[in-house]
């Protein structure tokens, strides 16, 4: 058995380009997911029951179906409704909606973990539900939300390999293309794995770092 790591070396520029596409898709999905997730999480603890039901339905539906199917639904399904999306946009939308559900659960969990007395004390001082949420509950919840949020970012980055199926030339797709030319499966996939690991490791470190900086004297 002979390995040809020179093939991997030659593939590096292409893989770097693929990784940068992976990062772009992931970062945009994270931002979209955070926005949706914050709204969904707040809706789940909202005093209004209808909003709670809508948020629960969204979270359950998204978490109960595969991301790959969601990606196909957005990219191949929506054109039937007259909505033709660019693969990149479709990928970001599908992943953002998917991540929003998980982030929503994380946000709700963080808010729920703050003792009820905090909300009661804030409301007893005359603050509105919003003011209490914004000034008292969320700053405390955020510190607790950060670690699971970091896990979600890492999961999302790895899951972004699924958008290779709708012809986005991200890292996985780039690896596939190079292999069809070079047939060096082991070398290239090892390289692809290493690139993923470098990115997830960087996220993990960054989250850990901000966690430590944010830890106030609890």
């Amino acid at each position: 058995m002979q390995f040809d790591f020179l093939a991997l070396y030659r593939a590096i520029p292409a893989l770097v380009f693929g990784a940068s596409m992976t990062l772009r898709v992931t970062v945009l999905s994270i931002i979209l997911g955070l926005l949706i997730g914050l709204v969904a999480g707040l809706a789940k603890v909202w005093p209004n029951r209808i909003l709670r039901i809508i948020a629960s339905a969204y979270i359950e539906l998204v978490r109960g179906t595969p991301l790959l199917v969601q990606i196909f639904l957005v990219y191949f399904g929506l054109p039937a409704l007259g909505l033709n999306l660019d693969p990149f946009i479709a990928g970001v939308i599908a992943m953002g909606i998917n991540s929003g559900a998980y982030v929503g659960e994380i946000v709700r969990g963080g808010i729920d973990s703050i003792a009820l007395g905090q909300m009661e004390a804030a409301r007893s001082l005359g603050m509105t539900w919003w003011q209490a949420m914004y000034y008292v509950i969320l700053p405390q919840a955020f510190v607790r939300i950060l670690p699971p949020l970091g896990n979600e970012f890492i999961a999302l980055l790895k899951d972004s390999s699924l958008v290779s199926t709708i012809a986005i030339a991200e890292l996985t797709r780039t690896g596939q293309i190079i292999i069809t030319r070079t047939f060096k499966s082991f070398e290239i996939w090892s390289g692809v794995a290493l690139f993923y690991f470098a990115m997830t490791y960087a996220i993990a470190r960054a989250v850990k770092h901000s966690e430590e900086r944010l830890r106030y004297s609890e």
């Binding site: 003792a115 004390a121 510190v143």
Partner: peptide
């Protein structure tokens, strides 16, 4: 309140 409920942050 019995448990103060000061804002810890």
């Amino acid at each position: 309140f019995q448990s103060f409920n000061l804002f810890p942050h």
